[in-house]
Structure formats: structure tokens, C-alpha cells
């Protein structure tokens, strides 16, 4: 593909745009009194501009053709040169690659060996570290277990002491309260007994009177009753209540 002259195309575009601008401005600032002269001028200018533009285009085309021919020529030459160079470069590159690759492989092998030895060393170190960690963890675990056992033992001992103290205190309190209750109950019983005896004392005479009133009415004869009457009258006379 021929190289297009961008300069020529750009110039063509500029000319076209200036022409349009000219026509626009002319139309815009067109005076009402002399429209024909300006228009003619404008047409002339435009005509000139288009001629020039066509000339420029023609020249641009010629240049473009020339350039495209040159380009083709140079491209072909360049291509030939490129092929040659490429072939040389490829030869060189292959030789270089061969050399480099061998070197690289050697270096790679050395590096790999080094890496392997490093890895083994690191692995060994890591394994040793893990073993160390394990031993340390075991020791810590044993220590923790012992500490926990000790604490638990202490807690149990303290718990037993507190429990025994609490039980003793509770027992004492219970005994005291029971004794208080017992004494209160005894007091209550005694009070009740005294009250009942007092009631009996108060009522035994009344009970006796009631009993006698029920019994004597049936058991005492009329003569006995009359005898009691005379006995009472004699007593009243003796006391001089009746004279």
C-alpha cells in the first residue's frame, strides 16, 4: 500500500474548510445594497480556490503515486535486506542460544543442586525445629497438667474444709434452734397445763354442783329435803338471822 501524503490531504482539507468559511461569512455579513458584486467575487474566489485545490490534489496524487512507487521499491529492498539480516540474526541467535542454553543449563543444574541442598538443609532445620517445638509443647503440656492437678487438689482440700466447717455450723444452728423450739414447746405445754388446771379449778365446783343437781334431784327423798330445810332453819335461828 502506497504511503499517502498526509501533508497534501491536510492542505486539501484546510482549503475546503476555508472555502466553506468564506461562503458562510459572506452570507452572514452580506450587505443588502451590493449583493451581486460580492457574490461574483466570492464565486471567483471559490473558483480560484477550487482550481488551486485541484492543482494541489493533482500534485498530491502525483506525489502519492511517486511515493507509493518509492515505497514499493524500498519495501522490496527492505524486505530482501530484512530476510538476509533475519537469516543472519537467526543463525547468530541460534548459536547464541545454543551457547546460552548450555550455559543456562549448567547454571541451572548448579542452581538446582544448590537449591536442592538448600532445601534439604531447610527441611532438616524445619524438622529439627518441629521436633523442638513438639518437645517444648510436651513439656509445657506436662507442666500445665501438673499445675492444674495441683490447683484442683488445693481446691478440693479447701472445699472439704469449708464444707466441714459449714456442716458443723449448720449442725450447731440446727441443734440450737431445735433446743429453742423444744423449750418453747415445753413452756407452751406447761402454760397449757396450768391454764387447764386453772380452768379445772374454776369449773370443778361448778361441775360438782351440776352433778349433784342432776343426781340429788333423783336420789334425795322428799323427807331428806325437808330435813335439810329444817336444818337450815335451825342454823339461821342459831345465827339469829331469823328470830
Amino acid at each position: 500500500m502506497p504511503n499517502i501524503d498526509f501533508v497534501s490531504i491536510t492542505a486539501l482539507i484546510i482549503v475546503t474548510i476555508s472555502g466553506f468559511l468564506f461562503f458562510y461569512l459572506q452570507k452572514k455579513h452580506q450587505l443588502p445594497s451590493e449583493p451581486d458584486s460580492y457574490q461574483e467575487k466570492g464565486y471567483k474566489i471559490l473558483q480560484n480556490a477550487s482550481k488551486k485545490a485541484q492543482a494541489i490534489l493533482g500534485m498530491a496524487e502525483l506525489d502519492a503515486i511517486k511515493i507509493s512507487a518509492d515505497t514499493r521499491f524500498y519495501r522490496e529492498k527492505l524486505a530482501e535486506r530484512f530476510d538476509k539480516e533475519a537469516e543472519i540474526a537467526s543463525k547468530l541467535a541460534s548459536e547464541l542460544i545454543k551457547l546460552n542454553s548450555q550455559k543456562t543449563v549448567d547454571e541451572f543444574n548448579i542452581y538446582m543442586n544448590q537449591l536442592k541442598s538448600d532445601l534439604e538443609k531447610s527441611n532438616k532445620d524445619f524438622t529439627d525445629y518441629l521436633i523442638y517445638l513438639k518437645n517444648d509443647a510436651d513439656a509445657q503440656k506436662n507442666q500445665s497438667q501438673d499445675a492444674v492437678k495441683q490447683q484442683i487438689l488445693q481446691i478440693f482440700v479447701k472445699f472439704e474444709e469449708n464444707l466441714s466447717q459449714f456442716l458443723m455450723a449448720s449442725e450447731q444452728r440446727s441443734v440450737q434452734s431445735i433446743e429453742l423450739e423444744l423449750s418453747a414447746a415445753r413452756q407452751l405445754i406447761e402454760t397449757y397445763k396450768q391454764q387447764q388446771l386453772k380452768l379445772i379449778d374454776e369449773n370443778v365446783i361448778a361441775m360438782l354442783e351440776k352433778t349433784l343437781s342432776l343426781v340429788l334431784a333423783k336420789k334425795m327423798s322428799l323427807q331428806d329435803q325437808v330435813d335439810l330445810v329444817y336444818e337450815a332453819l335451825e342454823k339461821a335461828k342459831a345465827e339469829k338471822f331469823i328470830i
Binding site: S213, L228, A236
Partner: peptide, 12 residues
């Protein structure tokens, strides 16, 4: 007065 049970009571 049956509550006397026996004997008498006097009022003068």
C-alpha cells in the same frame, strides 16, 4: 331455786 341442791336460802 333448784340450783340450791338442798336446804334453803332466806331473804329477810
Amino acid at each position: 331455786d333448784p340450783s340450791l341442791l338442798g336446804g334453803i336460802a332466806l331473804v329477810k
